[in-house]
């Protein structure tokens, strides 16, 4: 990232909230899925609720400087 003028590196609201929105959506789908049934529904639930945890691992691994 280059040191530049005040407005050059400003991100739009959508850019800022894109990743959080997808993570939230995955979490909610996961939370609802386990209510719907067993088996495949549980797999979807674990994957969905696992997304925020994976996001934390990703950020702490690759975005920490």
């Amino acid at each position: 990232m280059s040191p530049s003028g005040a407005n050059r590196n400003r991100r739009s609201l959508w850019t800022i909230f894109a990743a959080p929105t997808w993570i939230a959506l995955a979490s909610l789908i996961g939370l609802a899925s386990a209510l719907m049934g067993e088996g495949a529904w549980n797999l979807i639930a674990w994957a969905g609720v696992g997304v925020p945890v994976l996001a934390a691992v990703f950020a702490l691994r690759y975005r920490t400087h």
Binding site: I16, A18, A19, P20, I23, A24, L25, S27, L28, L31, V49, P52, A55, A56, F58, A59, L60, Y62, R63, T64, H65
Partner: peptide, 29 residues
């Protein structure tokens, strides 16, 4: 960028970044 944690800056900046990152990923749950 999403998920940035500036560990090499001040302690306060580092914990601000942790707070924002972990706060925003856990919101839906």
């Amino acid at each position: 960028d999403f998920g940035t944690v500036r560990k090499s800056k001040t302690r306060r900046i580092k914990w601000l970044d942790y707070h924002n990152l972990l706060g925003v990923i856990t919101i839906a749950w």
